[in-house]
Amino acid sequence: MRISQKLDYACRAMAQLAKRYDGRTITRLDELAQREAVSSNFLVQILNDLRRGGVIESRRGKAGGYLLARPPEAINLKEIVEAVEPSLLTITTHTEGESGAAVRQLWQAVSDRTREQLEGIDLKQLTERGNEPMYYI
């Protein structure tokens, strides 16, 4: 599956915000960009999409920045995808021809299953991944 750079950066920024979540701590744009090695100019566009999608809030001013709109366990990957890359979950096949309807049904089933999987992964789970201990032999 090909994940766009925009969606990858959105997930990484959301993971950073989830790690700091306490309901009031604001994280500055430059700190998010630095921690995830992302261009600030590109990241601000992504954060605006996430804000419009209702998963983050922004604060203006000298002490401004970003924070999650809800606790990490209340935000799932599907919401992030829908905010940043809604076309990823859109079926674009046609129903013309003898096999068109059957092929479209197949891709619709795959899309539905993908949506279910994305709904089942919340930000808390995302931040817990990668924190497992590493064992070397």
Rank of each mutant, 00 (worst) to 15 (best):
M1I: 11
M1F: 08
S4R: 11
S4L: 07
S4W: 12
Q5P: 01
K6V: 07
L7W: 07
L7I: 11
D8Q: 15
D8W: 05
Y9P: 01
Y9K: 07
C11Q: 06
C11W: 05
C11P: 01
R12Y: 10
R12S: 13
M14V: 01
A15E: 11
Q16C: 14
Q16Y: 09
L17W: 09
A18Y: 03
K19T: 01
K19A: 06
R20L: 10
Y21R: 04
D22R: 09
G23A: 07
R24H: 12
R24K: 15
T25P: 03
T25I: 13
T27W: 03
T27C: 10
T27H: 05
R28A: 15
L29A: 08
L29C: 06
D30S: 15
D30R: 15
D30K: 14
E31V: 15
L32S: 08
L32M: 08
A33E: 01
A33S: 10
R35L: 13
E36S: 14
V38P: 02
N41E: 10
Q45T: 14
Q45E: 15
I46M: 13
I46H: 04
L47H: 09
N48C: 04
L50H: 08
R51C: 15
R52C: 02
G53D: 08
I56Y: 04
S58W: 00
R59Q: 14
R59E: 14
R59G: 03
G61Y: 12
G64I: 04
Y66Q: 03
L68W: 06
P72N: 01
E73H: 13
E73I: 01
E73F: 07
A74G: 04
L77Y: 02
K78A: 13
I80M: 06
I80Q: 02
A83W: 10
A83T: 07
A83K: 07
V84K: 05
P86E: 11
S87F: 04
S87A: 14
L89K: 02
L89E: 03
L89S: 05
T90H: 06
T90V: 14
T92A: 07
T92Q: 12
T93I: 02
T93F: 05
H94W: 04
T95V: 13
E96N: 03
S99C: 05
G100R: 03
A102I: 11
A102F: 05
A102R: 12
V103H: 06
L106P: 00
V110S: 03
V110G: 00
S111W: 00
D112C: 02
D112M: 12
R113E: 15
Q117M: 10
L118H: 02
E119Y: 06
E119T: 12
G120E: 11
D122A: 02
L123C: 07
L123K: 02
Q125K: 04
Q125E: 13
T127H: 00
E128N: 13
R129C: 01
R129K: 09
N131P: 00
E132Q: 10
P133W: 00
Y135K: 09
Y135F: 14
Y135E: 12
Y135T: 08
Y135M: 09
Y135V: 15
Y135N: 09
Y136V: 12
